[in-house]
Nucleic acid binder design. Structure first.
Lengths: 216, 216
DNA sequence: GGCAATCTACCAACCGTTCGGTAGGTAGGC
DNA sequence: GCCTACCTACCGAACGGTTGGTAGATTGCC
């Protein structure tokens, strides 16, 4: 009985529009916006160029749909974590960075920063939506954890912009570096994600720790 | 007579090849590699497209020249600082970050990370040269300051990769963010460079400080 | 004269986009 | 049951424009 509720979720082959979205997002991420042609997207989607224009008004429209698509799913993990009342604040912060590293380095949306930088001057609305619908909410969720910690005395109050600078900066740069040097054969030894993340969180927790006992 | 020694340094209009390099670097930075056409570069350089092909073998060759051009000048400031024996280690580190922020956010070379990410899969050699001739030396110079401090007891020994992660991450991301959200009218209030930099260095110095006295 | 630097004029290939058309499904009147 | 009308999803072919790149003539300095 209960198994019947699952089957509708994952389809073996996505219908037209979604297939285009997934395929073109991959191509955009791999080649950039300008270097990805509508012909290439059509070919990779097993469709004709003309069919793309049935689903999307144009290349720009398709790109915006790619960026927008996945905002929600990329944010839900963090939302669930923040809503979790059973975790202590420092554990919650550590878990938040597990999610942030994972999302920013692995997910399609997270890896899109360089892409958005590429097109931001041509279509500023892409950058605006990326900021208001993804970056902003992500920052707000992280900040919620910090503020909860401050309220219960676990954390010390810190400057918000400076904290974001130190919290998100290394993650985004790590993601960018891994894209940039993706052709290096020893990528994981060059950029050992887990070790960098753990050291990073240690420092942030140290910053947030109220003055007093600091030992080994 | 004596005035003749000065005129060779700064020309009001750079000669052909250099003019192309400067102009095309600006265009690449503004529009990206693929979206910048040879025709546009020619027009902006007050030349014909054919003349570009006299100086450079092709678009890719020109781009590589753009990336390579300026490595040296972007690094000299940091080199001079490290060689300076009169400064204390913590002052030197602070000065190094003044230079790093300035270079990464303002100079042509420093702002090129997103560009290189865009083309890295198509021409991996660009990424390799960027890493070996710019990123690597920059890291080595910063690390020299840290090691000197450790040798004289001012700094505590830290993990190198983790330190680079925290040192360069926020700077690169800040540069990327300012490119990405360049159309925001309140850019400097969104990203107050000086304040973010000072807070950043404070934290790094705190990490490097030997265990013991930590007060306001 | 010779050579470096720049020009004019042009090409084939590809770009994003549009057009006209079609296969298949379905809703509704009669 | 059947016809008309409309729908979504797709296709082949073509459009005007731009691309990176080339051949060959021309300029101006040593």
């Amino acid at each position: 009985m209960d198994t019947s509720t699952v089957d509708a979720e994952e389809k073996p082959k996505a219908a037209g529009r979604d297939r285009i979205l997934n395929v073109s997002t991959d191509l955009f991420l791999e080649k950039g916006f300008a270097a990805t042609s509508m012909s290439a997207i059509a070919k990779a989607s097993d469709m004709t160029k003309a069919s793309l224009y049935y689903h999307f008004a144009g290349k720009e429209d398709l790109f915006i749909a790619c960026v927008t698509h996945g905002y929600a799913t990329a944010l839900t993990a963090l939302e669930n974590l923040v809503a979790d009342g059973a975790l202590s604040c420092d554990r919650k912060l550590r878990a938040a960075f597990d999610i942030l590293y994972e999302t920013t380095i692995c997910s399609q949306v997270g890896r899109m920063s360089p892409l958005i930088a590429e097109v931001s001057r041509a279509f500023p609305k892409v950058a605006r939506s990326f900021h208001s619908e993804y970056v902003g909410p992500q920052q707000a969720l992280l900040w919620q954890i910090v503020e909860d910690g401050v309220a219960e005395g676990t954390f010390m109050a810190v400057d918000q912009k400076q904290f974001f600078h130190l919290a998100f900066g290394p993650i985004v740069t790590l993601s960018l570096s891994r894209e940039m040097f993706a052709t290096f054969e020893d990528l994981d030894s060059h950029f050992p994600v887990d070790r960098l993340r753990d050291g990073h969180v240690d420092v942030l927790l140290d910053i947030l720790e109220p003055q007093g006992a600091k030992g080994s």
